[in-house]
Structures are given as C-alpha cells and as structure tokens.
Amino acid sequence: MNHLGDVLSALLDGELGGTERGEAERHLAECEACRLELSLIESARGVVRALPSLEPPPGLLPTRLRRRRWVLSPAWITTVAVAVALAFGLVVGPGEPGEAFEMDTLNEQHIARVVGDPGIATFRGDSP
C-alpha cells in the first residue's frame, strides 16, 4: 500500500480536488500509519499558525499612510475660493443699476475701519 505522504499536507490545506480528496480520505480510513502522520503534521501546522502576528515597530511604515486622505470636494473648493477672495477683498456684491462708486470715500471709510482711529477725520481735513 502506498502511503499518502505529502498528500496529507495538501489535504489539511484544502489543496486537493474532489477526486483526490475522496481517495485520500478512503485511504486514511484504512491506514493507521497515515492517520498518525496526519496528526503529527496537523500539530506542526497548528503551532506555526498559532504564532502571534507581530506588529511592525512604530515608524517602520510611513506615518502618512496612517493619516486620512484629504479629498478636494466641490464644496471644499468653493469654500476655499471664497475665503481667499474675501481675504483679498475681491468679492463684489450686487449693486444698484447706475450706482456710482466714489472710490475716495470708500477708501477713507475702509482706512477708518481698519485703523480704528477716530482722528481719521482730522487726517481728512474734516475737523471743525
């Protein structure tokens, strides 16, 4: 009788096709030597598979792999664009038709707000 040999490992690992598996199982039912060998390799296989899965040391894998990826959604792009535009004073609201901008006045009002200096009127020569 030919013993199963390495077919036993393939059987344990689910690597046998239906026919070969059936033949191996029938052989095992009749062969004590193969059953003993099967139990030995099953034990060896079990202890290796039971080895703990080790965590790689910190820093081995690049840290950026663990950070969330930022995705530029349309909402984000709009928000950023508006923020940049506001920062540079580029946003222009709708005006009344025919309304004229008096740039000097607007500039003075802006400077007065930014500086917060009530004496700005003096600078403008409006003081009594």
């Binding site: 393939a10 030995l40 296989r45 202890v47």
Partner: peptide, 16 residues
Amino acid sequence: VRSRIHRGRKMLKERL
C-alpha cells in the same frame, strides 16, 4: 511546494 511544506512540517514536529 507540497513536498516542501509537508517535509518542513515533519521536521518541525521532530524538533518540537
């Protein structure tokens, strides 16, 4: 592959 795995397991069992 099958042969190496099987023989490896047998050797492992002998050592353990």
